[in-house]
Design a protein around this nucleic acid. Structure first.
Length: 824
RNA sequence: GCCGGAGUGGCGGAAUUGGCAGACGCACGGGACUUAAAAUCCCGCGAUCCUUACCGAUCGUACCGGUUCGACCCCGGUCUCCGGCACCA
C-alpha cells in the first residue's frame, strides 16, 4: 500500500486478481440459499454512458452484499445485440452489422470490466450469437405449435422512414419511437404472437400479490396497458337486411339514449352496404381520406369529428327505433367490434358527432346535479344517476341498470356480457436484417411449416445488400429464400422477415441459468434452482414492453413445463435517469459526462460512490462535478486513515469496551453495520447507507487522536469499516484490506455481525415538551420507569419556569422518547 | 381529459411506525498549518428577533383548512412540476 491513493493502479491490480482467482464464477449449490441479481443487459452501442454506470453500480452493490451475506449469488451480464443501429451502420458506413456489433460488444465488455462489476463472465449471452438465436427460433416454433404464433394480414403501423413495421408498443404519440416519423397504416401479412390469450393471467398476477415486489407505478402502467373493461355486446339488426351489427358498450344502461350508429371506416360490410347507391362515392372518398392520414392526425382528440351517412338504418333492439348508420374515424376497428352505438347525451365523442351532424340528443340519465340541465346539455354527462326516458328501467339507479340490462339482453337473446382488452396481439415481423430469422417456410401445398428443429439455427445469410429501403434485406440473398418443404419435400420459400428484438430479451434471464447448453434452451433443473430473479434492476422505460413480454414468455414456457415459476421477476427496482444541470445528458446540449473521463480522473470507485450517494436509486440524479470531487475526497480520507492506523500498528486482542469514547465508537460501528445491511439488503437506500459509513469514519477520526486508545477496538472498527465499504467501492477496499492484513479477499468476507447490545446505550436522551414544543432534554438511564421519567421531567428547572403558575392538565409519556406536558 | 408520483436550507438529500425537522455530503464563511498556495485539520452555516456576550424567543417541510397532547408524515381542498395513457365506446 502506497501512502498516496493511486486509484488506477489499485483498480487494475484487483480486477486482475478477481479475474485470475475466478471469484465471481457461480455454480448451482443446493446447500446454499441462492440469490439471482440481474440488471437489464445493454444494447452494444459501443459506448457506456452514465445510465449504465448507475444501473450496474446498483446491481453490483446488491450482488456483492448478498454474496458476503452468505447467498449463492448469480450475477450475469450479456448483450441485447440484435437491432437497428448495427444495420444503419452497415447502410451508412458499409460495415457488416456482425462486425460492427461484435467489435462494440468487445469494447463494452472492457468498459464494464473497468467498473469492477462482479459478473460471472463465463455466463455471458449475446442474443446475436448463433448459439443464442438457435434457441430463440426453437422457442418460436414451440409457440407456433401451441397456436400462439400466427400470420395474418392486417393494417399495421408502418414507419415510412425506417421502412419497417412497428409494434403498437413502439408507436409513441403516433410516431416511430426511434426516428419520430409519423406512422402510417399499411396492410401487410405479418407474424403475431397471441399475447392476448394471456391478458387475464398477466392482469391477475398484478392483483394477486405475485408482483408485490414491483413498484406500484409499473404495475399500474401494465394494468392500464392491458386495459380490461367489462361490458356488454348488443346486436342491432339492419333495416331491410339480414345483417346484424354487434356493438360493445360498457354503458348498456344508456341504450335508450342511442340515436345513431357509427362504424369504423374499415368495417368489413361497409362497401357492400353502399354498393351501387348514391352513398357509394362519398363513402369511398371518406375512406380514402382516412387512409391517407397518419396516426397522429387520425387519433387526434382535438380534431373535429368527421364521418358520412351510409344510407342504412339500424334498429335498437330495446326501443325498436330506427337510427342512421355512419362511418367515422373516431371508431377504431381494432377495439371492440368496430361498431358503436351513439349515445350523445352521455358520451363526449358521440355528443360532438351528434352536434356536428344535427342528430337527436336524448338524455337517459339524470345525475341529480343542479348544475346540469339534462334537457339542455352543453357537453355529454358521463356521471351515474337516475334513469329517465328509459322504458322499464326508468327510475332505477344507472349503476344498477347495467347488470339488469345485461341480464335482460342475455335472457331475450339480444346480447351478452363481454370483457374487452386494449392489449393487442404482438406483431413481431420486422423487415430487417439484423435479427433472428423467423424459422418458417411457406409451401404451396402445405402452407406455413416450421423448419425442422434439428436443422436449427436458420442462419442469417451473409450475401445480402443493405439499402435501407423496401423489403427485408434477407430477400436480396440469392441463396436464402429457396428451400424444400420440411413436410412434403416440395419446393418452398423461407420467411425473409426477422423477429422483433424484444423476443430475444424476453427469455435471456433463463438462458443465463444454463448458458452453454447445446441440447436445449436450458435445463429445467438449473432454471428452477436460480429462478425467479430475486432482484431485477433497470430503467423505467421498460415498464411495459420488455417487462410484459418477459412475463408472457415465462408464462408460456411455464405452461410448456420448461420453467417452474410463471412470473420471472420477484422484485423490481427502476432506477432514475442521470441528468446534468437539470436536463438529460445529450450530445446536442453538450452536457454529456462520460464514464471514461471520470474513471480516468478519479477511478471507478469514485464514480460508483458518487452515483450511489447522490440520490436514492429511483429518483433522477443530477450529475455534479463538485459532488464527485467530494466522493473522491471521502475515499482519500478513508485511505489516509487506514494508512495511518496501519503505520501505527494496532494490537490485536479481545475487544473490551471500557470508556465512554469506546462506547461511542462501538455504537457507531455497530450502527453502521446494521444500517448498511438494512439499506442495501432491503430498502435500497444506498445514499443513507453510505452516509452512515461516513459517520463511522468521522467517529474513528475523532477517536484515534485521543490519549487513551483501545487498540483492539480501533483495529476491529477499521477492519469492519473496510468490509462494509467494499460492496460500494470494491477496489480500494481490497487494497486497504490487504494492508491491514486481512485474510483472503475482502469481497469474500462474511458480512460482519452487529452487536445489538452495543446499540442500546445505558443512558438515553429524552425530549421534554410543553404543548408539543421542545423545552428541555434530559439524559436518563435507559430502563427508567415511567413514573421516574415523569418526575424527572417535572423536576427540570427549565420546565418549572414554563409551568410556573400554570395548571398541568395531562402528561403524555412515550418511554424511551419523550414526555409531553399539556399546560394551560 | 383520465391514471399515477413529487413539492423540505444556497444545492443533492435525511427524518424507516404520528414523537428533537434539516443526518450525510456539496457550496459558502471563519480559523489552524504554510514564506505562499494547494492539500489537510478544526469551527460555523434555515429565517427573523432579543442580547455586549452567554442564554434565549418566534416562525419554518408548496398553499388553505381539519384531526391529534403532538403532523414533513393522517384527512379534505388548492396550486405547481414530473411521468404514463389518451377518440378504447
Amino acid at each position: 500500500m502506497k501512502e498516496r491513493y493511486e486509484f488506477t493502479e489499485v483498480e487494475k491490480k484487483w480486477q486482475k486478481v478477481w479475474e485470475e482467482q475466478g471469484v465471481f464464477k457461480t455454480e448451482e449449490d443446493p446447500s446454499k440459499e441462492k440469490f439471482y441479481c440481474l440488471e437489464m443487459f445493454p444494447y452494444p452501442s459501443g459506448k457506456l454512458h452514465m445510465g449504465h454506470v448507475r444501473n450496474y453500480s446498483i446491481g453490483d452493490v446488491v450482488a456483492r452484499f448478498k454474496k458476503m451475506d452468505g447467498y449463492n449469488v448469480l450475477h450475469p451480464m450479456g448483450f441485447d445485440s440484435f437491432g437497428l443501429p448495427a444495420e444503419n451502420a452497415a447502410i451508412e458506413h458499409g460495415i457488416h452489422p456482425s462486425k460492427w456489433t461484435w467489435e462494440n460488444i468487445h469494447d463494452m465488455e472492457e468498459q464494464l470490466r473497468e467498473l469492477g462489476l462482479s459478473y460471472d463472465w463465463d455466463r455471458e449471452c449475446c442474443t446475436c450469437s448463433e448459439e443464442y438465436y438457435r434457441w430463440m427460433q426453437w422457442i418460436f416454433i414451440q409457440f407456433y405449435k401451441r397456436g400462439l404464433a400466427y400470420k395474418k394480414e392486417n393494417p399495421v403501423n408502418w414507419c415510412p422512414s425506417c421502412q419497417t413495421v412497428l409494434a403498437n408498443e413502439q408507436v409513441v404519440d403516433g410516431a416511430c419511437e426511434r426516428c419520430h416519423t409519423p406512422v402510417v397504416k399499411k396492410n401487410l401479412s405479418q407474424w403475431y404472437l397471441k399475447i392476448t390469450d394471456y391478458a387475464d393471467r398477466l392482469l391477475e398476477n398484478i392483483d394477486n400479490g405475485a408482483l408485490d415486489g414491483w413498484p406500484e407505478k409499473v404495475r399500474l402502467m401494465q394494468k392500464n396497458w392491458i386495459g380490461r373493461s367489462y361490458g356488454c355486446e348488443v346486436d342491432f339488426k339492419v333495416k331491410d337486411s339480414d345483417e346484424v351489427l354487434t356493438v360493445f358498450t360498457t354503458r348498456v344502461d344508456t341504450i335508450y339514449g342511442t340515436t345513431f350508429m357509427v362504424l369504423a371506416p374499415e368495417y368489413p360490410t361497409v362497401l357492400e352496404n353502399v354498393k351501387g347507391t348514391e352513398y357509394e362515392q362519398p363513402v369511398l372518398d371518406y375512406i380514402d381520406r382516412v387512409n391517407h392520414m397518419n396516426e397522429i392526425e387520425r387519433t387526434s382528440t382535438t380534431a373535429e369529428k368527421t364521418g358520412v351517412f351510409i344510407g342504412k338504418y339500424a334498429i335498437n333492439p330495446f326501443t325498436h327505433k330506427e337510427m342512421p348508420i355512419f362511418i367515422s374515424d373516431y371508431v377504431l376497428m381494432g377495439y371492440g367490434t368496430g361498431a358503436v352505438m351513439g349515445v350523445p347525451a352521455h358520451d363526449q365523442r358521440d355528443f360532438e358527432f351528434a352536434t356536428k351532424f344535427g342528430l337527436e340528443i336524448t338524455p337517459v340519465v339524470d345525475p341529480g346535479d343542479p348544475e346540469v340541465d339534462v334537457n339542455d346539455l352543453k357537453q355529454a354527462c358521463a356521471a351515474s344517476g337516475t334513469m329517465i326516458n328509459s322504458g322499464e328501467i326508468t327510475g332505477m339507479n344507472s349503476n344498477d341498470a347495467i347488470p339488469y340490462m345485461i341480464e335482460k339482453a342475455e335472457r331475450e337473446g339480444l346480447g351478452h356480457r363481454k370483457v374487452n382488452y386494449k392489449l393487442r396481439d404482438w406483431l413481431i415481423s420486422r423487415q430487417r436484417y439484423w435479427g433472428t430469422p423467423i424459422p418458417m417456410i411457406y409451401c404451396e401445398t402445405c402452407g406455413w411449416v416450421p423448419e425442422k428443429e434439428e436443422n436449427l439455427p436458420v442462419l442469417l445469410p451473409t450475401d445480402v445488400k443493405f439499402t435501407g429501403k423496401g423489403e427485408s434485406p434477407i430477400a436480396t440473398s440469392p441463396t436464402f429464400r429457396k428451400c424444400t418443404c420440411p413436410k412434403c419435400g416440395g419446393p418452398a420459400e423461407r420467411e425473409v422477415d426477422t423477429m422483433d428484438t424484444f423476443l430475444d430479451s424476453s427469455w435471456y434471464f433463463l438462458r443465463y441459468c444454463d448458458p452453454r447448453n447445446a441440447e436445449k434452451p436450458f435445463e429445467k433443473e438449473k432454471v428452477d434452482y436460480w429462478m425467479q430473479v430475486d432482484q431485477y434492476i433497470g430503467g423505467v422505460e421498460h415498464a411495459i414492453l420488455h417487462l410484459m413480454y418477459s412475463r408472457f414468455f415465462t408464462m408460456v414456457l411455464h405452461d410448456m413445463g420448461m420453467v417452474g415459476v410463471e412470473e420471472p421477476f420477484a422484485n423490481l427496482l427502476t432506477q432514475g435517469m442521470v441528468n446534468k444541470d437539470g436536463r438529460k445528458m445529450s450530445k446536442s446540449i453538450g452536457n454529456v459526462v462520460t464514464p471514461r473521463e471520470i474513471i480516468d480522473k478519479y477511478g471507478a470507485d469514485t464514480a460508483r460512490l458518487f452515483i450511489l450517494f447522490a440520490a436514492p436509486p429511483e429518483k433522477e440524479l443530477d450529475w455534479s462535478d463538485a459532488g464527485v470531487e467530494g466522493s473522491f475526497r471521502f475515499l482519500t480520507r478513508v485511505y489516509r486513515l487506514i494508512y495511518e492506523l496501519k503505520s501505527r500498528g494496532l494490537k490485536d486482542g479481545e475487544v473490551v469496551v471500557k470508556t465512554a469514547e469506546d462506547r461511542a465508537l462501538n455504537y457507531k460501528l455497530n450502527f453502521a453495520i446494521k444500517k448498511v445491511r438494512e439499506d442495501v439488503g432491503g430498502r435500497f437506500m444506498f445514499n443513507t447507507a453510505i452516509s452512515s459509513i461516513m459517520e463511522l469514519v468521522n467517529e474513528i477520526y475523532k477517536y484515534k487522536d485521543q490519549k487513551e486508545i483501545n487498540e483492539p477496538l480501533l483495529r476491529k472498527a477499521a477492519r469492519e469499516l473496510i468490509v462494509i465499504l467494499s460492496p460500494f467501492v470494491p477496489h480500494i477496499a481490497e487494497e486497504m484490506w490487504e494492508h491491514v492484513g486481512g485474510e483472503g479477499l475482502c469481497c469474500l468476507q462474511s458480512w460482519p455481525a452487529f452487536d445489538e447490545k452495543s446499540l442500546v446505550l445505558d443512558e438515553i436522551e429524552i425530549v421534554v415538551q410543553i404543548n408539543g414544543k421542545v423545552r428541555d432534554k434530559l439524559v436518563v438511564p435507559k430502563d427508567i420507569s415511567k413514573q421516574e421519567l415523569e418526575q424527572a421531567a417535572l423536576g427540570s428547572e427549565k420546565i418549572r419556569e414554563f409551568t410556573e403558575g400554570k395548571e398541568i392538565f395531562k402528561v403524555i409519556t412515550v418511554p424511551g422518547k419523550l414526555v409531553n406536558l399539556v399546560v394551560k
